[in-house]
Simulated scan of single mutants.
Amino acid sequence: MRPYVICHMMASLDGRIDCAMTEQIDDTNHYYEALAQLGCPSTLEGKTTLAMHYAQEGTFQPARAHEDAGLQLYKAVEAKGYAVGIDTNGTLRWDDNTTELFGRPLLMILSEHTSQEYLDYLKQKHISFITSGRNGIDFASAFETLRTVFGVERLAVVGGGHINGSLLDLGLIDEISMMYGYGIDGREGMAAAFDGRTLSSKPIRLTFKSVEEQDGIVWMRYLVEVKK
C-alpha cells in the first residue's frame, strides 16, 4: 500500500517550470492555494529543486572511507505531514533547523548506496530518512514505507521535471494537477513539467477530471489511466 500521489505543477503555456519564471506568471499565489485544496499534508521534491532553493551550498564531504548504508529508516519525529526530498547518493548539506525551513519536518529518500556517514549526519540534524534500492532508488518500496511507517496517505509531487517523468513511468502518480499561467517561456534548455523520458516512451493516457479559471490562470486536473 502506498500514498495517493498527485503531481501538482505551475507552468507557462509552453509547459516550462523554471521557478523564477513561474513566479512572474503567478504573482497571486494561486498555485499554493490550489495545493492546499488538494489535501496533501506531505510534498515531495527532487534533488535539483532542493539544491536550488533549500539546501546549503556545496556537497557533503565524507571524512572516512565509503561504507554502503544498506536498507535503513530513521523516524526523527512523528508528524501529520512531511517535506519529502530525493537525494539518491546523499550529498546535500542542511541547516540545523530544517523544520523551520520547510514548515514541517524533512524526510529524505536515498538509495542503499548512500554512505553510513551521511546517514549519521542526517541523524545529527534530526532529519528522517528512508534508504531503498541498490541501483538507484526503489520508489515503489520507499512509497510503501512512507505510508506504513510515516503515515503519509496523500502526497503531492511538486518538482521537478525529471522526478515527475520518472514517477510517471513507474506508475506511481495517480493524478495530474497542472496550472498554466499567463505567459510563455520559450528559452532553450528549460525543464518541462515532465522531462527525461526516453525517446521510445509512449504517451501516458489521462482521464479528464476538472478545469477552472482563476484570474487568467487555468487549473486542470486529470487522472492517470492504469496501465493494462
Rank of each mutant, 00 (worst) to 15 (best):
H126I: 02
V149L: 06
I184W: 09
G181S: 07
M220Q: 10
I86Q: 04
E45H: 14
K75P: 00
R197T: 06
V5Y: 02
V84I: 13
S210P: 00
A83T: 01
A140Q: 13
E225L: 03
L73G: 02
Y182R: 14
V152E: 01
V157Q: 03
R147T: 07
G216F: 09
A20G: 13
G151P: 02
G39V: 07
A34S: 12
E212G: 10
P41C: 08
L168P: 00
F129G: 00
R147M: 10
V218F: 14
A142E: 06
P203C: 08
C19W: 13
D96V: 12
S132E: 10
G46F: 06
L106G: 00
A20E: 14
P203A: 07
G196L: 08
Q24A: 13
K80G: 15
M21A: 12
A142S: 08
R221V: 10
Q56C: 13
L155K: 04
L155G: 00
D96R: 12
R16T: 09
T207D: 15
E175N: 01
V224I: 10
S12H: 04
K75G: 02
I25K: 01
A192F: 15
A63Q: 15
S128T: 01
L110T: 03
V158A: 07
H66M: 04
L106A: 11
T148H: 10
K209Y: 09
P3T: 04
G81W: 06
L122W: 02
M108L: 15
L170W: 09
E225A: 13
K228S: 13
D95Q: 13
E33F: 11
Q116N: 10
A36K: 14
G196E: 09
L13E: 05
M52D: 12
L44S: 01
T91R: 15
G136F: 05
D95H: 11
G133W: 02
V226S: 13
G186C: 05
G161R: 01
K47M: 12
D138M: 02
Y121Q: 08
E23N: 14
V224D: 01
Y54D: 10
D174V: 01
G58N: 09
T114F: 08
L170Q: 15
G171F: 08
L168H: 04
